[in-house]
């Protein structure tokens, strides 16, 4: 059931302690800052967060980690020049890390949304990130068994939603949005614009509205401008 919601606070109000939350974005591109800020304000804690990174600088996911709301990160690239909040929590033993090669992370998320119970992939074979995992020689190469990553909620940033919840994105801010929308039981999307049914060309829809549960318009969403230039 699709709902259009007035405020980011109402949009995240149902997120319970202990939830697994997928958060879109690669670095700051596509990161739904307003939804994350609302999640922080909601007080939800003991969260497992799925994101490519583990926060940059002093905003968004980095603040959620700083405030101790994140019990576990599932990500591919936590260590960055400005990931000081994650670094501190990790070194203090206050956050759990499941490190996943980036393509396996994406495919595990995709698998969850697509109803796939697991898959074999060559990525990671023979490395410490495949230790303890089942391997098979398939299709001419050794492959590692990987399982889907499901989530209770996904927080996503898109550019435009129509009245059916169909989404389009902007440039490389698309990144994890489409697969996270499908993988989570409940997807919450912030957009910069909501247009009437029929206003988006059906040929150009990136995420069909069937994957979208809640849409909230955020005035600063969409064109990221220079908001995310902490590399």
């Amino acid at each position: 059931m699709l709902r259009f919601i007035d405020t980011v606070g109402e949009a995240v109000a149902g997120i319970k302690d202990g939830s697994t939350v997928m958060i879109g974005g690669f670095g700051n591109a596509g990161q739904p800052f307003e939804l994350i800020d609302a999640l922080l304000d909601s007080g939800a804690t003991d969260l497992t967060v799925v994101n490519n990174n583990a926060g940059q600088g002093d905003q968004g996911l980095a603040l959620l980690i700083k405030e101790g709301r994140v019990r576990k990160m599932i990500c591919s690239f936590p260590r960055q020049s400005d990931s000081w909040h994650f670094d501190a929590k990790y070194k203090a033993g206050e956050i759990e890390l499941e490190l996943v090669p980036q393509g396996n992370l994406a495919e595990r998320i995709r698998a969850a949304g697509a109803g796939i119970g697991g898959f074999f992939t060559p990525t990671g074979y023979g490395t410490m990130l495949a230790e303890g995992k089942e391997t098979r020689f398939l299709d001419g190469k050794w492959q590692v068994f990987e399982t889907p990553i499901h989530a209770d909620v996904a927080l996503i940033k898109a550019l435009v939603a129509d009245g059916k919840g169909n989404l389009i994105y902007r440039k490389t801010a698309r990144n994890f949005g489409p697969i996270m929308a499908a993988a989570a039981k409940h997807s919450i999307v912030q957009v910069s614009e909501i247009v009437p049914v029929g206003a988006l060309d059906p040929e150009n829809i990136v995420t069909p509205g069937i994957y979208v549960n809640s849409v909230v318009r955020v005035s600063s969403s969409g064109t990221a401008g220079n908001e995310g230039q902490v590399a």
Binding site: R79, F86, L97, L99, Q102, P122
Partner: peptide, 13 residues
Amino acid sequence: IPAVGGAMDLATG
């Protein structure tokens, strides 16, 4: 702090 990103996927693919 380990960080792998897309390195393994690129190397393999």
